[in-house]
């Protein structure tokens, strides 16, 4: 497949999961079957929702995001804290060339410490709800593309994919990059979880890129007498590099 225009990097499908993955049973009826059609990138593809960077533009109509939205241990607004192991998650959002993406809105959702979601569809798992935990958060990356959430570590939860199936602990996240094709919804996991090896959703990703979904324990992020720290960096598709751009960014890319 070739494009008439390469203004945005081609999607690296080999680094993503396939559309259809039999071990994740509900993909069977929900995966597209015709080949995708490759198109020229027009202004429609080279632009996209830019909620974070417009958050301070009162004419634009974006929702307001405050610091309180990034603290899931208290953002239920009850005045009491959520129960669970306090966990700080920090990371950096860049494009594939290492260019930081400031002003990006990151939205997250997760189960509580017992593995229970506050959602009307969750009816099968008899685990308690936490009145002080919503499981929803938002934040905007700073000038160097860094973000930080404070939450509680989510619990694993059972699901109906196969007998005795359990999702590893994970946090869902959603972000728009610098343009429409960079839209990313994913889940990140926690280093060392024995359920990772058994999870078809995690293992749908090719072995060489699976580790990019695993947050690593970061002792420098851990806060004494308060919370454990994890680091999860996010890399989005971005504008194609010109040869000089590629040279300029290559040293920073090694981390």
């Amino acid at each position: 497949m070739t494009r008439a225009s390469e203004a945005f990097e081609a999607k690296m499908y080999e680094d993503h999961p396939p559309f259809s993955y039999p071990a994740y049973r509900s993909t069977a009826k929900r995966a597209r079957t015709n080949p995708m059609i490759s198109i020229t990138h027009t202004l429609s593809e080279l632009t996209g929702p830019n909620p974070g960077s417009n958050a301070h533009d009162p004419t634009a109509g974006w929702l307001e995001v405050t610091d309180a939205d990034a603290d899931l241990t208290t953002n239920a607004g009850t005045g009491s804290e959520a129960i669970g192991s306090r966990t700080s998650v920090v990371g950096r959002v860049t494009d594939v060339h290492g260019t930081p993406i400031p002003g990006a809105l990151i939205e997250i959702w997760q189960a509580n410490a017992c593995g229970r979601y506050r959602h009307f569809r969750e009816t099968a798992f008899p685990a308690p709800l936490d009145p002080n935990f919503l499981g929803a958060g938002r934040c905007i990356t700073d000038a160097v593309g860094e973000y930080r959430f404070l939450t509680i570590r989510p619990g694993p939860y059972p699901w109906g994919n196969h007998p005795n199936a359990w999702r590893p602990a994970h946090i869902h996240l959603s972000l728009f990059g610098t343009a429409w094709p960079a839209r990313l919804v994913t889940q990140f996991y926690f280093e060392g979880d024995p359920l990772l090896a058994l999870d078809p959703i995690f293992n749908s990703v090719a072995a060489h890129s699976r580790h990019r979904l695993v947050a690593l324990y970061a002792h420098d992020v851990t806060e004494e007498n308060f919370a454990l720290g994890y680091r999860f960096d996010i890399v989005l598709n971005g504008p194609a590099a010109t040869p000089s751009d590629a040279h300029a960014h290559s040293p920073a890319a090694g981390r």
Partner: peptide, 21 residues
């Protein structure tokens, strides 16, 4: 080949309305 590996996609799952949409 761009220098940084892309973050892979995962399903949005059944509970996204906690935040999205």
């Amino acid at each position: 080949m761009p220098p940084l590996g892309i973050t892979p996609s995962q399903t949005v799952g059944p509970y996204f309305t906690i935040v999205l949409g």
